[in-house]
Design a protein around this nucleic acid. Structure first.
Lengths: 212, 212
DNA sequence: TAGCTCATACTCCACTTTAGAGTATCGTCA
DNA sequence: TGACGATACTCTAAAGTGGAGTATGAGCTA
């Protein structure tokens, strides 16, 4: 009877290893921290997950009063610790990206130049919002310290990853916003064909130096 | 009676705008091109989507013989074109990332140093596989040209995006593989605390220059 | 010729996940 | 007293998934 655990299960086990949590705390933490960037999950799904952990003996639940209300506190079990350790020992290089914005840009030859550029600007604006949010968090970590001070290095690692990706997308959108300045429209023409070939040639070089 | 269209619906409309497609062709194209990077979708879902488009009058379907077999060919309608154009005119800066690997790295304080480093190496290896794949595609586009020659600039745009993200993650993993060389274990210590603070301080600077 | 493999062409399905609400209670404030 | 925000959690129709499966035809080999 192998428990059908998902990465979400393991994420919660990872948090429970640090301390006991209420379901609300787990959900709030997962949705307001770096975790929401590297493993975005819907509210309802997170609430359901600890119940599954309990059903499989990986966590325990107790209901306690809290300021006149009841809340459920979850704690990891020994079995849960072992399941987490086994998962951590299984290397996995996978990641995925998805973007409706990028999809719209990919099909922008069905729209006008100004619409394409508006999409690129929207991506840049979205990145700006992200930067402001991240800046406040980083300043807080350097000042008061993170929620888990003993994990500062992991906090920094994730902040570095998020910033790297946000910056990469920002740079990409800015690059093509600049390149498209000289386009008459979204159709292929001499200007943007030359640009495209140059970019592809540059990519071929870059990829060639990295594939071994 | 507004059709409940998803980004997947629009992606298919975007492809149908270029030419008529069979369901098999739509599925194969979506899963083997840049589209699978910016909007990854399961096989069954893609097969179902064109039927919905037909149900909403955005596409038509006809069954034709093909080498003794039957296949369904879909074509976009005028209504479908208008729905696509309206979607393209709605800017959207959103994107999402998800990675079980990053999740495992985030919780690696529950494992040993070698396990953390194995995770980082797995990410780098995954990137290397990606580079080899992309290299072959880019070489093909520069040689024979892409499937849709008139969209070369959009092909280049997406290749640039994919490469940027792959490179960013590769660099991040390499950076932390290097930084962790001097760690005695995954716990916080003087060495990695100093590293973490330096990274966070550098991030604060970078974010500060980009948030306005 | 028969069998195997691959490509073409698509369906099925139990389960998971989502977006986007909703309900309920308590403390604080005007 | 009523409104608002925080705490605490549930509900649900629709979308999506992984991982098969079925079927047919062409090409190749023993």
């Amino acid at each position: 009877m192998a428990a059908k655990l998902t990465p979400t299960s393991y994420a919660l086990l990872g948090l429970l290893r640090l301390q006991p949590w209420s379901a609300y705390q787990l959900t709030t933490y997962m949705q307001s921290t770096a975790l929401n960037f590297i493993w975005p999950r819907a509210n309802a799904g997170i609430y359901n997950e600890p119940k599954k952990l309990v059903a499989h003996g990986l966590a325990t639940a107790r209901v306690e009063p809290n300021a006149g209300r009841r809340r459920t506190i979850y704690e990891i079990t020994g079995k849960g610790r072992r399941a987490l350790a086994a998962w951590l020992a299984r290397p996995n290089g996978e990641w995925s990206f998805a973007s409706e914005a990028a999809l719209q840009i990919f099909f922008a030859d069905g729209a006008g130049l100004e619409e394409l550029r508006a999409q690129l600007r929207a991506l840049i604006e979205h990145g700006r919002d992200r930067y402001q949010m991240d800046q406040a968090m980083v300043a807080h970590w350097l000042g008061e310290g993170p929620r888990f001070p003993a994990r500062l290095h992991f906090t920094a690692m994730m902040a570095d990853l998020i910033s790297s990706l946000t910056t990469a997308i920002d740079d990409w959108a800015s690059r093509w916003l600049l390149l498209s300045e000289s386009w008459p429209d979204t159709a292929l023409n001499d200007v943007n064909e030359t640009q495209a070939r140059e970019i592809l040639e540059r990519l071929l070089e870059t990829l060639g130096t990295r594939d071994n």
